[in-house]
Design a protein around this nucleic acid. Structure first.
Lengths: 318, 318
DNA sequence: CTGAAAGCGCTAACAT
DNA sequence: ATGTTAGCGCTTTCAG
């Protein structure tokens, strides 16, 4: 009926009637049922997003995605990944909600399953490289980012540069590769040292404790991400090592925490705002019938943000 | 048809047929349409949650809510509040989704509107005190928490204790009150000093810069929350003041960041896990027809976590 | 244990 | 500019 027209703000109702409908709707506290609407319509106008609720960088991305989706006239459906809620379940929920496209932030799902998913609907993977033309990828140039970090330390005079890696996390393989490439390029292959870390500060602390058990000590540590880096800082602090006088530390992300003065972390910055907008652009370009106009993979250049955790190596090892 | 029975795991289908249906469903990649199901059913089994995507403490709560809702057989619908997406809109979305009950994390919505909302469906407010029996509240004993913090500083010998408040944020009024009460109880009314702060580190830094312009300097600062406290630490650091030798700082929440060694913040701990479970319990008890068995307001006791940002005041002012 | 019919709240298409 | 009809995908109710 005409109520439908009015509630959607479409033309085709007289101003008088329109006002009357809105008035009654207010009195009754009537809100249109989003599910019934979606059920009836051909398009749902829904963009599904999976994210890890405890990852600050994901928060930045989510914020940007809301903003970009809003501009494009799409609704965002969030599906969180938590300790008790697996990624598979988060994705399942979004499918059941009939989202038109999916944006997965740092997905841990095996590639094979991602490809299966991409056969069903447009999938945009953010912050993880998946080499396949059937799905879209928006990621930071991880290799380049790590190179920037290594270059910075080498310029300061470091040679014993270690990498606390991200294990099986998205992007971890690329960053390991970037580390190895950069070390070799500088003729420092003999000093290569990769310790198994992870995404959390606990992982970073654990890895650092392990790193400290062997001699000679590293004078520079590249952590997988900022959170991991805070764990590295923690372990160094407890081991009575001063940063940056004894050891320099570099993170990755430039999450909010990196900028705090008592962390004051030198880090490789990923631009969440740009990545979020690109992810939405990718997803929507697949939906618009005229086919994808963007490249299947967009690689965003990172930048090095130099703060207080990096400096020249201690004289004894310089 | 029987497909419906099978997909919901209900009894009433022969094992052979059940397996056949599941097999075909897998092949087709069939996922039941959540919206159609909800539309048909009397109950939606949906729990709506609004949260600020950039608030780490909210992340902790969301994680706990997912877990508790899961146990109770409810689905969680997240609605984020971001810089570009107002709380009113977040709530609107949840109503349109036909959630059975709402859990609002630290809502900024005026009390009047919250009460209007509570007339329509059960509303549980978390981390904000709203004195009204028509809605449920789960909050930390803010006054008690601040008292713990003041007591701690007084025991260490401080007298010039300032409070960087949360402005109009949820809980800010209670914490101001707790501060004033505690100061008076200790006979320190003359040293009362409240500076307008806020929720973010920028707010904390700004307030601290203001605090430092007047003499005599405070030797202890209670920040509204941990994030605000990091801003306080930042401003002190830039002013060449050492923590805790020159100034002691206490936060509130015990968010993840507080525990990082390079922050190592003494803080008042709110138990997110317990609060999340209570919030879900409250919401569900209102839904179960036999009326609410829990008290309308549940106040969770906070605890003081002493870390490295508090110590005795400098001798000159002791 | 399996099938058929009705209807949840909405909107697209058509008729007035 | 307004009213009518049908059907989205599912579940509930009732028959076989």
């Amino acid at each position: 009926m005409l109520v439908s027209l009015v509630m959607r703000g479409r033309p085709g109702a007289s101003p008088a009637n329109r006002e009357r409908v809105l008035q009654v709707a207010r009195e009754l506290g009537y809100v249109p049922d989003a599910r019934a609407r979606v059920l009836r319509q051909e398009r749902t106008n829904l963009l599904g997003v999976t994210f890890a609720v405890q990852q600050p960088f994901h928060s930045d991305l989510v914020e940007g995605i809301y903003s970009a989706a809003d501009t494009a006239g799409y609704e965002v459906v969030l599906s969180a990944i938590t300790g008790t809620r697996a990624e598979a379940r988060a994705i399942e929920t979004l499918l059941a909600e009939r989202c038109e496209a999916l944006i997965l932030l740092g997905p841990q799902t095996p590639k094979r399953q991602l490809l299966e998913l991409a056969e069903r609907l447009p999938v945009t993977v953010v912050a993880r490289g998946v080499a396949d033309p059937t799905l879209d990828v928006v990621r930071t140039a991880d290799v380049r980012g790590i190179q920037l970090a290594v270059d910075h330390l080498v310029e300061l005079g470091h040679t014993r540069i270690a990498h606390v890696d991200g294990g099986t996390a998205p992007g971890a393989a690329q960053r390991r590769k970037g580390y190895r490439d950069a070390m070799r390029r500088h003729g420092l292959a003999e000093f290569e040292r990769i310790v198994h870390g992870g995404l959390t500060d606990d992982d970073g602390a654990r890895a650092t404790r392990q790193l400290l058990t062997t001699l000679p000590p590293s004078t520079g540590i590249l952590a997988f991400n900022d959170r991991c880096a805070t764990g590295v800082l923690d372990a160094l602090f407890r081991a009575r090592l001063h940063v940056p006088d004894n050891v320099s530390v570099i993170g990755f992300d430039d999450a909010h925490i990196a900028a705090f003065s008592h962390v004051d972390l030198t880090t490789v910055r990923q631009d969440a705002k740009v990545m979020a907008r690109l992810a939405v652009d990718h997803a929507l370009s697949r939906l618009d019938a005229d086919g994808p106009s963007l490249a299947r993979e967009t690689v965003v250049p990172p930048t090095l943000v130099v703060r207080g955790t990096t400096g020249p190596p201690p004289p004894s090892t310089a």
